[in-house]
C-alpha cells in the first residue's frame, strides 16, 4: 500500500468516526425515549405493580393468564378491530378517491389541494370536540337543518354501532389526508406514457385505471394501509372526548381499556400487559405486511 493510499484510508476512517459520533445523540434519544420505556413496560407487564393493593414485586405470567379470561378485554379487541377496519378502509378509499380527483386538477386551482390537508393539521382533541358537537342532537347544525323539514336525525352516540360509526367518521375526517398525500405522491411517480399507450390501444379510462394505475399504486396502498392500521390501534382521544368508552363499555377499544386499568383501576401491571399485547400485535402486523409489500414490489 502506498503512503498516499494509507493516508486516504486513514482519512476515510476519520470521516466515518466523525459520522458515527454524530449518530450518538440520535441513538441515545432512541434508547432513552423508545427502548428504555419499552423495556420498562415489558418488565412491568410481568410484575404485580398495583398502586392500591400494594406490590410484592413477584414476577410471572399471571397478567397474561388473566387476559385469557378477561371478557372486557375480549370486548375491547372486538371494538378495536371494528374501529380500525372500518376507519382504515374509509380513510384509504376516500384518500385514494380524492388523490385521483385532485390529480386531474391543473393550473391555479391546484392551490385548492391545501383545503383537503387542513383536517390533518387539526389536533385530535379538537377534532373530537367538533364531531362531539355535530353528533349531539341538541347542539348539531345537522339536526337543526333536518328539523326544519320535520326529519329527526337519530342520536348516534347512544347506541353501540352509532357510537362506533361516529368515531370512525371523526377519525376518517382527520386522517384521510394522510392516505391522500401518499397516494398523490405515488400517482405522480407513474409515467403518463403508460396511460397514453393504453389509450392508443383503445383501453377505456376505467380499464386503464384498474389494470395499469391500480397495480402500480399497490405498494403505496399497502404502505398507507399498514401505517394507518398500526396508528389506529392507538385509538384514544376520540373515545375519551366523544363517548368516554360508552354507551356502557361499547366503545372501550383496547388502548382505552389499558388506560382504564392503569389510571382508573390503578392496576399498572395489567395495563402494561395489555400495552405489551398491543405492541406485539402491531409488530406482527408490520412484519407480515412488510413481507407482503416486498412480494408486491418485486
Amino acid at each position: 500500500m502506498t503512503a498516499q493510499a494509507q493516508l486516504r484510508k486513514g482519512a476515510t476512517y476519520q470521516l466515518q468516526r466523525g459520522y458515527r459520533l454524530m449518530m450518538v445523540p440520535a441513538l441515545l434519544a432512541v434508547a432513552i425515549f423508545a427502548i428504555v420505556p419499552l423495556a420498562g413496560m415489558f418488565a412491568l407487564s410481568f410484575s404485580d405493580y398495583h398502586l392500591i393493593r400494594g406490590t410484592n414485586w413477584e414476577f410471572g405470567f399471571h397478567n397474561f393468564a388473566k387476559m385469557l379470561a378477561d371478557k372486557r378485554l375480549m370486548n375491547s379487541i372486538y371494538v378495536m378491530a371494528a374501529l380500525s377496519v372500518l376507519g382504515v378502509a374509509a380513510q384509504v378509499l376516500i384518500g385514494s378517491a380524492v388523490a385521483v380527483g385532485l390529480q386531474k386538477i391543473t393550473g391555479r386551482w391546484r392551490v385548492g389541494r391545501i383545503l383537503f390537508l387542513l383536517p390533518y393539521a387539526v389536533p385530535h382533541v379538537a377534532v373530537a370536540l367538533i364531531w362531539l358537537s355535530l353528533f349531539t342532537p341538541t347542539l348539531s347544525p345537522i339536526n337543526a337543518f333536518f328539523d326544519v323539514f320535520g326529519i329527526t336525525v337519530p342520536a348516534m352516540l347512544t347506541s353501540q354501532w352509532g357510537a362506533i360509526f361516529a368515531i370512525v367518521v371523526a377519525d376518517t375526517w382527520t386522517n384521510f389526508p394522510f392516505a391522500m398525500l401518499i397516494i398523490m405522491a405515488a400517482l405522480q411517480g407513474i409515467s403518463p406514457d403508460l396511460e397514453e399507450a393504453a389509450a392508443i390501444d383503445g383501453a377505456s379510462r376505467i380499464r386503464t385505471f384498474i389494470h395499469i394505475t391500480l397495480p402500480l399504486l399497490a405498494p403505496a396502498l399497502l404502505m398507507v394501509t399498514l401505517f394507518r392500521f398500526i396508528d389506529s390501534l392507538k385509538h384514544f382521544p376520540m373515545i375519551f372526548v366523544m363517548t368516554k368508552g360508552g354507551p356502557g363499555r361499547s366503545t372501550q377499544a383496547t388502548n382505552f381499556y389499558a388506560y382504564v386499568q392503569t389510571f382508573q383501576s390503578s392496576n399498572v401491571a395489567y395495563g402494561a400487559a395489555i400495552a405489551v399485547m398491543l405492541f406485539l400485535m402491531a409488530a406482527l402486523i408490520s412484519f407480515y405486511v412488510a413481507k407482503l409489500n416486498q412480494r408486491v414490489t418485486s
Binding site: 368508552g245 356502557g248 382508573q264 383501576s265
Partner: peptide, 23 residues
C-alpha cells in the same frame, strides 16, 4: 375509600349501559 375511582368507573359504565338500553 382508595378503591372509589375504580368502583365509580365500573358502576358508572353499568348505569350508562342501562340508560342507553344495552342492558
Amino acid at each position: 375509600i382508595p378503591e372509589w375511582p375504580t368502583l365509580g368507573q365500573a358502576i358508572g359504565e353499568s348505569v350508562n349501559a342501562a340508560i342507553n338500553g344495552l342492558i
